[in-house]
């Protein structure tokens, strides 16, 4: 497993006020692969993923040190244009968060705020993105309907489509299936399998089976530290660290 590196994280530390949420994290994220982050609640995996597109900036009193190299620049630099960054590194949230607008207006939201006005272009983007998120067939006849009328699983795939419409390179997913039923979850997982051909994906999950099914590499987080990072199959079958072993074998969680 030696692919191209998309994002390289070195000595990342992060504090909320006096609380250190991330401790000296070092990870290389591979291009066009799914990287899973697992660990018990509060271990820092969500905080970590939100650092990659600087969404933690929204929190009061956040401080960070270290570097996250992406396309030859350090994302954590204070002069990083976070608006531009978030076009390249997009995020799908835990709870589906469609805007209270029509399905169509949701998908083309990104392109619109980035200045695309041409109706035909927007329609092409909408179709391509909805197809990319495997939801086109379910919604193509009701694009004008409110997105809030979709089921939870459909809403989440719509949110993925909305992200694809911005044409990012990296997709960050913060427990994207945790609020969904098993059938909707398996649709999201199938989708991940398709998406990794074109995108670099980092997914946070509390579901170890899910990590095992969808990812090629997995990182285990514990109390703000990155304990072990290895090809998924190795991490689950031959964990090197005692805590990883205890976690993946279900001794704590």
């Amino acid at each position: 497993m030696s692919g191209e590196i998309e994002i390289s994280i070195k000595n990342l530390n992060l504090w909320f006020g006096n609380f250190q949420a991330l401790k000296n994290i070092n990870i290389d994220i591979q291009k066009n692969a799914v990287t899973a982050l697992i660990g018990p609640s509060g271990c820092g995996k969500s905080t970590f993923i939100k650092t990659l597109d600087r969404m933690n900036d929204l929190v009061d009193n956040v401080k960070f040190t270290g570097e996250i190299m992406y396309k030859g620049r350090n994302i954590l630099d204070s002069d990083t244009d976070v608006v531009e960054l978030r076009k390249e590194i997009g995020m799908v949230f835990q709870k589906p968060n469609p805007f209270p607008k029509s399905i169509f207006d949701n998908v083309v939201y990104g392109p619109r705020v980035h200045g695309i006005r041409d109706k035909k272009t927007l329609h092409e983007i909408a179709e391509r993105s909805l197809k990319g998120a495997a939801i086109w067939d379910e919604v193509k006849d009701r694009l004008g309907e409110s997105a809030l009328r979709l089921s939870g699983g459909q809403q989440q795939r719509l949110c993925i489509a909305r992200l694809l419409a911005v044409e990012p390179d990296v997709l960050l997913m913060d427990e994207p299936a945790s609020a969904l039923d098993p059938i909707a979850t398996s649709k999201i997982e199938d989708l991940l399998y398709e998406l990794k051909k074109d995108y670099t994906i980092v997914i946070v999950t509390h579901n170890m089976q899910q990590a095992a099914r969808v990812s090629s590499r997995t990182a285990f987080f514990w109390l703000g530290e990155m304990v072990e990072y290895a090809p998924t199959i190795d991490l689950f079958e031959r964990p090197q660290n005692k805590r990883t072993e205890d976690y993946v074998t279900g001794k704590f969680g």
């Binding site: 597109d53 978030r86 997009g90 949230f93 968060n97 805007f99 209270p100 990104g110 992200l163 911005v166």
Partner: peptide, 11 residues
Amino acid sequence: ELREGSLGLGA
């Protein structure tokens, strides 16, 4: 979540 969703799309 709506604000995050919008900011997350580069708005």
